[in-house]
Simulated scan of single mutants.
Amino acid sequence: MKWKQEILEKVAFIKGHKGFASLGIRKQEVSFNPCLTEKEILSFEESHCITLPEDYREFISEIGNGGFGPGYGLLPLDKAVVDFKLNNKPEIPLNKSFRYQDDWNEEWIFSFDWERGYPDDDIVNAYISTDHISGCLQICHYGHGGTFLLVVNGNEKGHIWFDGRADYGGLVPKKDAGQRISFAEWYMSFLDMEIKIIKEHEEGTY
Protein backbone atom coordinates (compact mmCIF):
# COMPACT_ATOMS: atom_id res chain seq x y z
CA MET A 1 0.00 0.00 0.00
CA LYS A 2 1.70 3.19 -1.18
CA TRP A 3 0.00 5.23 1.56
CA LYS A 4 0.87 2.86 4.41
CA GLN A 5 4.11 4.33 5.70
CA GLU A 6 2.88 7.91 5.46
CA ILE A 7 -0.35 7.03 7.27
CA LEU A 8 1.50 5.21 10.05
CA GLU A 9 3.95 8.10 10.51
CA LYS A 10 1.15 10.64 10.75
CA VAL A 11 -0.84 8.48 13.16
CA ALA A 12 2.28 8.08 15.33
CA PHE A 13 2.76 11.86 15.37
CA ILE A 14 -0.87 12.40 16.43
CA LYS A 15 -0.56 9.74 19.12
CA GLY A 16 2.58 11.38 20.48
CA HIS A 17 0.89 14.80 20.60
CA LYS A 18 -2.64 13.69 21.49
CA GLY A 19 -3.00 16.30 24.21
CA PHE A 20 -2.95 19.03 21.56
CA ALA A 21 -5.40 17.31 19.18
CA SER A 22 -9.07 18.20 18.72
CA LEU A 23 -11.49 17.24 21.51
CA GLY A 24 -12.95 14.30 19.61
CA ILE A 25 -9.52 12.82 18.98
CA ARG A 26 -8.47 13.25 22.60
CA LYS A 27 -11.41 10.99 23.52
CA GLN A 28 -10.38 8.27 21.04
CA GLU A 29 -7.85 5.50 21.32
CA VAL A 30 -5.18 6.10 18.68
CA SER A 31 -5.00 2.48 17.67
CA PHE A 32 -6.41 0.02 15.13
CA ASN A 33 -8.23 -3.29 15.29
CA PRO A 34 -6.38 -6.37 14.04
CA CYS A 35 -6.07 -6.61 10.27
CA LEU A 36 -8.22 -8.98 8.25
CA THR A 37 -6.66 -11.84 6.35
CA GLU A 38 -6.98 -12.21 2.59
CA LYS A 39 -9.24 -15.20 3.19
CA GLU A 40 -11.56 -13.15 5.44
CA ILE A 41 -11.77 -10.31 2.93
CA LEU A 42 -12.44 -12.67 0.03
CA SER A 43 -15.17 -14.37 2.03
CA PHE A 44 -16.84 -11.01 2.70
CA GLU A 45 -16.58 -9.98 -0.95
CA GLU A 46 -17.99 -13.27 -2.18
CA SER A 47 -20.89 -13.26 0.29
CA HIS A 48 -21.92 -9.75 -0.84
CA CYS A 49 -21.08 -10.19 -4.55
CA ILE A 50 -18.70 -7.20 -4.61
CA THR A 51 -15.02 -6.34 -4.70
CA LEU A 52 -13.82 -3.70 -2.25
CA PRO A 53 -12.00 -0.56 -3.48
CA GLU A 54 -8.29 -1.37 -3.55
CA ASP A 55 -7.13 1.35 -1.13
CA TYR A 56 -9.72 0.39 1.49
CA ARG A 57 -9.00 -3.30 0.97
CA GLU A 58 -5.32 -2.69 1.60
CA PHE A 59 -6.06 -0.52 4.64
CA ILE A 60 -8.06 -3.23 6.42
CA SER A 61 -5.49 -5.89 5.50
CA GLU A 62 -2.29 -3.91 6.23
CA ILE A 63 -3.17 -1.20 8.79
CA GLY A 64 -6.31 -2.22 10.66
CA ASN A 65 -9.90 -3.34 10.34
CA GLY A 66 -11.34 -0.15 11.80
CA GLY A 67 -10.15 1.95 14.70
CA PHE A 68 -8.70 5.46 14.82
CA GLY A 69 -10.44 7.87 12.47
CA PRO A 70 -12.80 10.82 12.03
CA GLY A 71 -15.74 11.24 14.41
CA TYR A 72 -16.05 8.12 16.54
CA GLY A 73 -13.46 6.27 14.49
CA LEU A 74 -13.54 3.78 11.63
CA LEU A 75 -16.03 0.94 11.93
CA PRO A 76 -14.79 -2.61 11.30
CA LEU A 77 -15.99 -4.28 8.12
CA ASP A 78 -18.64 -6.46 9.77
CA LYS A 79 -20.23 -3.41 11.41
CA ALA A 80 -19.86 -1.12 8.41
CA VAL A 81 -22.39 -3.23 6.53
CA VAL A 82 -25.05 -2.74 9.27
CA ASP A 83 -27.10 0.46 9.53
CA PHE A 84 -26.74 1.09 13.27
CA LYS A 85 -29.03 4.16 13.09
CA LEU A 86 -32.16 2.06 12.51
CA ASN A 87 -33.86 0.15 15.32
CA ASN A 88 -33.86 -3.20 13.50
CA LYS A 89 -30.17 -2.83 12.51
CA PRO A 90 -30.63 -3.98 8.89
CA GLU A 91 -27.75 -4.95 6.64
CA ILE A 92 -27.07 -2.53 3.81
CA PRO A 93 -27.56 -4.35 0.48
CA LEU A 94 -24.08 -4.17 -1.02
CA ASN A 95 -24.98 -6.28 -4.04
CA LYS A 96 -27.16 -3.42 -5.35
CA SER A 97 -25.61 -0.37 -7.01
CA PHE A 98 -25.56 2.98 -5.23
CA ARG A 99 -28.08 5.00 -7.23
CA TYR A 100 -26.85 8.59 -6.80
CA GLN A 101 -24.15 10.57 -8.60
CA ASP A 102 -24.94 14.09 -7.36
CA ASP A 103 -26.17 15.67 -4.12
CA TRP A 104 -29.54 14.22 -3.19
CA ASN A 105 -32.34 15.12 -0.84
CA GLU A 106 -36.14 14.76 -0.88
CA GLU A 107 -38.04 17.77 -2.18
CA TRP A 108 -40.64 17.59 0.61
CA ILE A 109 -38.00 18.46 3.20
CA PHE A 110 -37.63 21.98 1.82
CA SER A 111 -41.37 22.70 1.80
CA PHE A 112 -42.39 20.95 5.02
CA ASP A 113 -43.65 23.19 7.85
CA TRP A 114 -41.25 22.09 10.59
CA GLU A 115 -42.75 24.53 13.11
CA ARG A 116 -45.96 22.52 13.09
CA GLY A 117 -44.39 19.17 13.87
CA TYR A 118 -42.65 16.28 12.16
CA PRO A 119 -43.52 14.20 9.10
CA ASP A 120 -45.41 10.91 9.43
CA ASP A 121 -43.41 7.82 10.32
CA ASP A 122 -43.97 6.18 6.95
CA ILE A 123 -42.48 9.20 5.18
CA VAL A 124 -39.47 9.29 7.51
CA ASN A 125 -38.96 5.53 7.27
CA ALA A 126 -38.86 5.74 3.47
CA TYR A 127 -36.37 8.59 3.71
CA ILE A 128 -33.95 6.80 6.03
CA SER A 129 -34.32 3.40 4.37
CA THR A 130 -31.12 1.53 3.50
CA ASP A 131 -32.39 1.51 -0.10
CA HIS A 132 -30.85 4.98 -0.44
CA ILE A 133 -27.40 3.72 0.55
CA SER A 134 -27.38 0.40 -1.28
CA GLY A 135 -23.87 -0.42 -2.44
CA CYS A 136 -22.23 1.54 0.40
CA LEU A 137 -20.29 0.67 3.52
CA GLN A 138 -21.10 2.91 6.48
CA ILE A 139 -17.49 3.23 7.54
CA CYS A 140 -17.64 6.02 10.11
CA HIS A 141 -20.14 7.58 12.53
CA TYR A 142 -19.29 11.27 12.57
CA GLY A 143 -21.86 12.27 15.20
CA HIS A 144 -25.58 13.01 15.53
CA GLY A 145 -26.37 10.14 13.18
CA GLY A 146 -24.25 11.55 10.35
CA THR A 147 -22.06 8.93 8.71
CA PHE A 148 -19.38 8.68 6.07
CA LEU A 149 -20.07 6.16 3.32
CA LEU A 150 -17.65 4.33 1.06
CA VAL A 151 -19.32 3.34 -2.19
CA VAL A 152 -18.45 -0.24 -3.14
CA ASN A 153 -20.95 -0.85 -5.93
CA GLY A 154 -22.05 1.42 -8.78
CA ASN A 155 -20.69 4.36 -10.77
CA GLU A 156 -19.44 6.07 -7.60
CA LYS A 157 -17.44 3.05 -6.46
CA GLY A 158 -14.36 4.03 -4.47
CA HIS A 159 -15.67 7.47 -3.51
CA ILE A 160 -16.59 8.84 -0.08
CA TRP A 161 -20.06 10.30 0.54
CA PHE A 162 -21.62 11.90 3.62
CA ASP A 163 -25.01 10.67 4.82
CA GLY A 164 -26.77 13.49 6.65
CA ARG A 165 -30.27 12.04 6.55
CA ALA A 166 -30.46 11.81 10.36
CA ASP A 167 -30.71 15.62 10.27
CA TYR A 168 -32.61 15.64 6.95
CA GLY A 169 -29.45 16.73 5.16
CA GLY A 170 -29.54 14.14 2.40
CA LEU A 171 -26.55 12.52 0.71
CA VAL A 172 -23.52 14.49 -0.48
CA PRO A 173 -20.29 13.35 -2.20
CA LYS A 174 -17.11 14.50 -0.47
CA LYS A 175 -14.86 16.56 -2.70
CA ASP A 176 -11.46 18.21 -2.75
CA ALA A 177 -10.97 21.05 -5.23
CA GLY A 178 -14.22 19.97 -6.87
CA GLN A 179 -13.10 16.37 -7.35
CA ARG A 180 -14.45 13.20 -5.75
CA ILE A 181 -12.12 11.69 -3.16
CA SER A 182 -11.13 8.11 -2.45
CA PHE A 183 -10.97 6.40 0.93
CA ALA A 184 -7.20 6.94 1.20
CA GLU A 185 -7.48 10.62 0.25
CA TRP A 186 -10.28 11.15 2.76
CA TYR A 187 -8.38 9.44 5.56
CA MET A 188 -5.15 11.28 4.78
CA SER A 189 -7.05 14.58 4.79
CA PHE A 190 -8.36 13.76 8.27
CA LEU A 191 -4.83 13.06 9.52
CA ASP A 192 -3.48 16.26 7.96
CA MET A 193 -6.22 18.33 9.60
CA GLU A 194 -5.45 16.87 13.03
CA ILE A 195 -1.73 17.49 12.59
CA LYS A 196 -2.50 21.09 11.61
CA ILE A 197 -4.60 21.51 14.78
CA ILE A 198 -1.83 20.00 16.92
CA LYS A 199 0.84 22.30 15.49
CA GLU A 200 -1.39 25.37 15.89
CA HIS A 201 -2.08 24.40 19.51
CA GLU A 202 1.63 23.97 20.18
CA GLU A 203 2.35 27.34 18.60
CA GLY A 204 -0.53 29.00 20.43
CA THR A 205 -2.24 30.07 17.21
CA TYR A 206 -5.28 27.73 17.37
Rank of each mutant, 00 (worst) to 15 (best):
P53K: 02
E58H: 10
C140V: 06
W104A: 00
L77Y: 10
G143H: 09
F84N: 07
G71I: 06
G145P: 15
E58R: 15
K157N: 05
S97Y: 00
L52I: 02
G143Y: 08
L149K: 05
N88L: 14
R116C: 04
I133W: 04
L149T: 05
K157R: 11
E107K: 04
E62K: 14
E54L: 11
G143I: 12
H159P: 01
W108R: 03
A126K: 11
D163R: 08
L77H: 14
L86R: 14
F59K: 02
K96W: 04
E115V: 03
N105D: 01
I139P: 08
N65E: 08
I139A: 13
G71P: 05
G67I: 12
W114C: 11
L77P: 12
P53W: 04
F110E: 12
Y118E: 12
Y142S: 12
S134T: 10
Y72R: 07
E58N: 14
G145R: 13
F162R: 09
G69W: 04
N153F: 00
P93W: 03
W104E: 00
E62Y: 13
D113C: 03
P90D: 03
Q101S: 06
D113M: 03
Y118M: 13
I133Q: 02
H132E: 12
H159A: 02
K96I: 02
K79N: 13
H159R: 07
G145D: 15
Y142H: 09
S129M: 05
D163V: 06
F84W: 10
E106R: 07
W114N: 06
T147I: 09
I133R: 09
V151H: 06
A80G: 15
K96C: 03
P53S: 01
N105C: 00
V82Y: 09
F162H: 03
L86P: 10
Y142Q: 12
Y56H: 05
N87P: 13
D78N: 15
V82A: 06
G164E: 07
V82S: 03
E107G: 03
I109Y: 01
D163Q: 04
D113L: 04
V124K: 06
N87Y: 12
G158C: 02
P76M: 12
G154T: 08
R165E: 02
K89C: 09
G146Q: 15
V81W: 12
E156K: 01
E62A: 13
T147Q: 14
K85L: 11
L75A: 13
F59E: 02
T147N: 15
P53T: 02
K79I: 06
E115Q: 10
E91Y: 14
E107D: 06
D122G: 04
I63W: 11
G69L: 07
G135R: 04
L75C: 14
N125Y: 05
Y118A: 08
F84I: 08
S61E: 07
I160R: 01
Q138H: 09
L75P: 02
A126F: 01
V124Q: 03
L52A: 00
I109H: 00
N155H: 06
F98M: 02
W104I: 00
E62H: 13
V151A: 04
P119L: 04
Y56E: 04
I139L: 14
